[in-house]
């Protein structure tokens, strides 16, 4: 589940919610899906809130990547 991109995680999450809301799902399956969904919520939250500042790099002519600071 960690391997999914943020977009995929979010889509999957919404898919599960829609499925659960349709109501035709047996309780055991519903509980499994709910646990999956909770896992995905956690993954999404981690992905969203773990970065503090965007990493900016400048691609030099020789292809080297150097940290780029806008205040310099």
């Amino acid at each position: 589940m960690e391997d999914l991109s943020f977009e995929e995680s979010l889509e999957k999450l919404e898919e599960i919610v829609n499925k659960l809301e349709s109501g035709n799902i047996p309780l055991d399956d519903a509980i499994d899906e709910f646990n999956n969904a909770m896992q995905l919520v956690k993954v999404c939250n981690n992905k969203l809130n773990n970065a503090e500042e965007a990493i900016a790099k400048i691609v030099e002519d020789n292809g080297e990547l150097i940290d780029f600071n806008i205040n310099e």
Binding site: A51, A54, A56, K57, I58, F68, I70
Partner: peptide, 21 residues
């Protein structure tokens, strides 16, 4: 470039930025 980096930082800092000057 300043405007762009500042904006991305504010909105979605998990995104990397590569600058091709």
């Amino acid at each position: 470039i300043k405007d762009i980096i500042t904006t991305i930082n504010r909105r979605y800092p998990q995104c990397e930025i590569y600058v091709f000057s």
